[in-house]
């Protein structure tokens, strides 16, 4: 059934098509260039990214090294759960974190029932949307992004890119060198819905809260924005 459907559909499409050669089609697409993107709220990348994460109802910690990152995560866990447990993917970058520095007890693997917090290490952060980008692999089970009550995401400052076009440049390079993952996820905030009378509610299906830990040499102004924001947004 599908075979004949396919040939019938393609024959109708060919009739409607301009019948250009591949070379001409590629050349025409190239001539259309790239899309305009919105101006960032401020020119400095870290600041703009943090502002957009806050706009997305996320919360942010700025840390300058991995030991501080672990301490910030420990503080977050204790504030919300009075314990130091979380689930993290089998990501070598996460395994190499100095967890003992703050007594955090990660379980490496995929989130299971009854586990409220998962940690991911983002491949990229997109300044334009305040989104983090992850892709599925053995180092990053999808369940850890979409099933926890709280999702914590580490983003390296060096992985920030200004626009979605630049994000795709980096992703395309990765797809060419390390193969295509089955899923690429841009995540910009906790899960939300306004399906009941237009009232915005967080935690529709996925995380109620979304916490970003920005790692690296962060300008003081950007740190101040993160510090001044309310910690209890979503």
């Amino acid at each position: 059934m599908s075979g004949s459907a396919r040939s019938e559909i393609f024959s109708r499409l060919r009739e409607a098509s301009r019948g250009e050669t591949e070379e001409n089609i590629q050349r025409e697409r190239l001539s259309l260039g790239s899309a305009p993107s919105p101006m960032p709220p401020t020119p400095e990348n870290c600041q703009a990214f943090i502002l957009n994460v806050l706009n997305n109802q996320g919360s942010v910690d700025c840390v300058s090294n991995r030991s501080e990152a672990v301490k910030a995560i420990a503080h977050y866990l204790y504030t919300h759960f009075h314990n130091y447990r979380l689930v993290a993917g089998n990501d070598p970058r996460l395994a190499a974190m100095p967890w003992r520095d703050a007594g955090v007890l990660p379980r490496f693997g995929s989130l299971e029932a009854g586990e409220p917090v998962a940690l991911s290490f983002a491949r990229l952060g997109v300044v334009e949307t305040g989104a983090v980008v992850t892709w599925t692999s053995k180092a990053n089970p999808a369940a850890n992004n979409f099933l926890p009550e709280h999702h914590i995401v580490l983003v390296d400052k060096n992985d920030l890119v200004p626009t979605m076009e630049q994000a795709w440049e980096r992703i395309n390079h990765a797809l060419e060198t390390t193969g295509r993952p089955r899923g690429i996820n841009f995540i910009a905030g906790p899960s939300s819905t306004a399906d009941i009378e237009g009232e915005l509610v967080y935690g529709a299906h996925g995380p109620h809260r979304w916490h970003v830990v920005l790692l690296g040499d962060i300008p003081v102004d950007a740190q101040n924005i993160a510090r001044a924001a309310p910690k209890d947004q979503s």
Binding site: G183, F186, G206
Partner: peptide, 8 residues
């Protein structure tokens, strides 16, 4: 300005 999840 964008939705929460844009997935491929």
């Amino acid at each position: 300005p964008h939705s929460c999840y844009t997935s491929f």
